[in-house]
Design a protein around this nucleic acid. Structure first.
Lengths: 202, 202
DNA sequence: TTTTGTATTAACCAAATGGTTAAATCAATT
DNA sequence: AATTGATTTAACCATTTGGTTAATACAAAA
């Protein structure tokens, strides 16, 4: 099973799967090796230690989670077009890897210190400050209602992310099956945009 | 250090602290014992196994997280009063124990099967179906706009919960210190109510 | 005071776990 | 074919970890 692709990649793929589903503390090196179909020693041969391997997986994950946000945020575009663009793009990103936000959030909660450093060195670090300035300006201009830019940012992200990280509990409470919940998620982009615009429209 | 209170309670308190901060996989029985200031054997003497102890902590946690929601949801009250009541009450609950939702959500993601059973046997199981029926009725009556009750529910919960579970990352991106972020959370009740009403008002 | 049942502890145990190593395999080079 | 360097593996190691046990401390009842 091992020879098909590059062993290094094979390990990373397996590590992603195990770390993301079980977390750093719950992941077992043996399970990663099994998943990759190789000997456990290879993990250390290529990546030294569990922590080193985890760091690679985590960095890529956080890049995807906040990077996607930053990409749209930094684009030059009128605010009233940018907001739906952010929502569409961000929900698309989450749907591609619905388990990533939970993984990232949880590991960050486990060690916030290590994270803060990493965040600022992140190339995709979202330039939120500019975005918030735009919101304030638009408010003064009367393009939108004058709202707290921080609250607006939190609202957008909350509405986009939570339905995915809270999926098991929400699905349980709402008593929906997978197919039904998927349909609800399909509508999300439209709904979130609607909600945000209802709140900020003059 | 052990004699002050009942040893059993002492253990539960310590177990809560350790399990909630580190999760099931990351928690160490020795750490719980140390936290309680007692011998590790006492944990097994009173609660058999790590899993049994965890179950107690987890059940209480999930009770708080979804129970609080159910309490308000099941109250007899006009919809337009009930929605702000839900929001106020739920955010109050989260602020009392901001780490609980993350803990519950994460552990549920780890073993969704075990959870689904527990959910239905939960005494505080929120009667969301009735609440959703009320929303549909109110829509038809014209009290509110006709919106998907499922989406409304998701919106409320998302806006309330996410800013707390995503706090480290949000605070990092927004570059706010603890005091500033606390102030933002203070305003949350008002903002969430505002957003929801803006969306559902006719 | 003695007895008796409960609470508590130190020492211990077996399994799991991250990590290492020495030998073996493989592939390219000479 | 022989050499050489990288890759891979089985076996091993030290530590950690959940759990047990036998002996002890303690408190209430007799």
């Amino acid at each position: 099973m091992a020879q098909d692709r590059n062993t290094e990649e094979l390990i990373i793929e397996a590590a992603k799967k195990i770390f993301i589903t079980r977390g750093l503390a719950g992941a077992r090196m043996q399970d990663i090796a099994d998943e990759a179909g190789i000997n456990k020693a290879m993990l250390h041969y290529y990546y030294r230690s569990k922590d080193k391997l985890f760091e690679i997986v985590f960095n890529e994950a956080i890049g995807k989670v906040i990077g996607r946000l930053g990409m749209v945020l930094n684009q030059q575009m009128p605010l009233l077009e940018k907001i739906p663009a952010i929502i569409d793009n961000y929900i698309d990103g989450i749907m591609e890897a619905p388990y990533l936000p939970m993984f990232v959030l949880n590991e960050i909660n486990q060690q916030p210190e290590m994270f803060v450093q990493r965040l600022k060195s992140q190339q995709h670090f979202p330039n939120v400050l500019q975005f918030m300035k735009d919101i304030v300006d638009a408010g003064k201009q009367g393009t939108i209602r004058e709202v707290s830019p921080v609250q607006l940012f939190l609202n957008i992200v909350s509405l986009c992310v939570f339905p995915f990280i809270g999926r098991p509990i929400a699905q349980g409470i709402l008593q929906l099956d997978n197919v039904q919940y998927n349909m609800v998620m399909e509508d999300r982009k439209k709904v979130v945009t609607e909600v945000i615009f209802a709140w900020i429209k003059v």
